[in-house]
């Protein structure tokens, strides 16, 4: 059952250059994703592919010069700015990247308690700290006294006590050691197993594969493929899009062989398929128009040549 649907989302930023000259940078174009109850969707892509902007668009926290089009639906009804304000932090929770998102002047126990919407906040906070093996002394600490791993667990606790139905986790793992990563990932799996929908934003395919049910691959502001995790095996024969294949092959445990070039800048996107300039399979047809997202073998792909 889908809880959150994003259809044809586009985001552009208005910028001024040379005084009053106005330009629009399109950073996300015709993007589609769906979050389902009990499932984890991993959103994978290079930095600058629009992963975090998608999260911010869902929560309605984009800066004021952003122009959003397309439809975001939550529980079947359109997610308007008014609903976004009402739901964020309650039914839709964000697990942000770093300790910088904690209030530096507030004891972390109190911060977690403000997220409790029903019942006794103090006991809920103590219970969740105990689960995440945060000692009793931690609730009275300030963020600067926490290690990176403890801060991460505090942020997770905040999402956990909020009774959220949708959790969006933005790059929760880089730079942590494997033990802490495993713990964080297991927590997301548990959220999902309790009936929540989880969106895990990451550039790291490996950690995504450990816990996700489906992987959505982003390239230059759009989804190029949505695939079940089972497809990521062997030499990547089951993978649909050439960019996803390239990512899979570039992993150090696979071939460690990169494709040349880099993602196009939003100000100079190619007219046809966004991946066409770097694609081995590209033909004249690819340059004509951006390909539509289509269904293929229990997944989705935005490529006319994919089989």
């Amino acid at each position: 059952m889908s809880i959150l649907e994003v259809e044809n989302l586009s985001v552009s930023f208005k910028q001024y250059t040379d005084g009053f000259k106005e330009i629009n940078h399109k950073v996300i174009s015709s993007l589609n994703v769906t979050l389902e109850a009990g499932k984890i969707l991993a959103v994978v892509g290079a930095s600058g592919s629009g992963k975090s902007l998608l999260a911010h668009a869902i929560l309605g926290i984009l800066p004021s010069n952003a122009n959003v089009s397309g439809i975001i639906k939550y529980e079947g009804k359109e997610l308007t700015p008014i609903r976004q304000t009402a739901l964020r932090g309650k039914e839709i929770a964000l697990v942000p990247q770093s300790v910088n998102f904690l209030d530096p002047l507030m004891r972390v126990g109190n911060q977690v308690r403000t997220s409790v919407k029903n019942g006794d906040a103090v006991s809920a906070q103590r219970k969740v700290f105990e689960r995440y093996r945060l000692g009793k002394e931690v609730e009275d600490m300030y963020p600067f006294q926490l290690s990176g791993g403890m801060a991460r667990r505090t942020l997770l606790s905040t999402a956990m006590v909020s009774d959220a139905k949708v959790i969006i986790a933005d790059e929760p793992t880089p730079g942590l050691d494997p033990v802490v990563i495993k713990e964080a990932l297991d927590n997301f799996r548990e959220f999902a197993d309790n009936g929540c929908a989880v969106m895990l934003i990451t550039h790291d395919i490996e950690s995504a594969l450990q816990i996700a049910d489906k992987i959505a691959v982003f390239y230059a502001g759009t989804t190029v493929e949505i695939a079940p995790v089972e497809d990521f095996v062997g030499n990547g024969e089951a993978i649909r899009h050439p960019y996803t294949k390239a990512l899979w092959r570039a992993l150090p445990q696979n071939e460690f062989r990169p494709i040349p070039g880099s993602q196009p800048h939003p100000s100079s996107l190619p007219p046809g398929c966004l991946f066409e300039p770097r694609c081995e399979m590209a033909t004249a047809e690819c340059r004509q128009a951006p390909p539509k997202m289509r269904e293929l073998r229990d997944g989705m792909v935005r490529c006319i040549h994919a089989t």
Binding site: P174, L247, A250, P252
Partner: peptide, 11 residues
């Protein structure tokens, strides 16, 4: 290369 995608890391 911890913050980079797999392809950029390999490059």
């Amino acid at each position: 290369t911890t913050m980079l995608d797999a392809n950029t890391q390999a490059q």
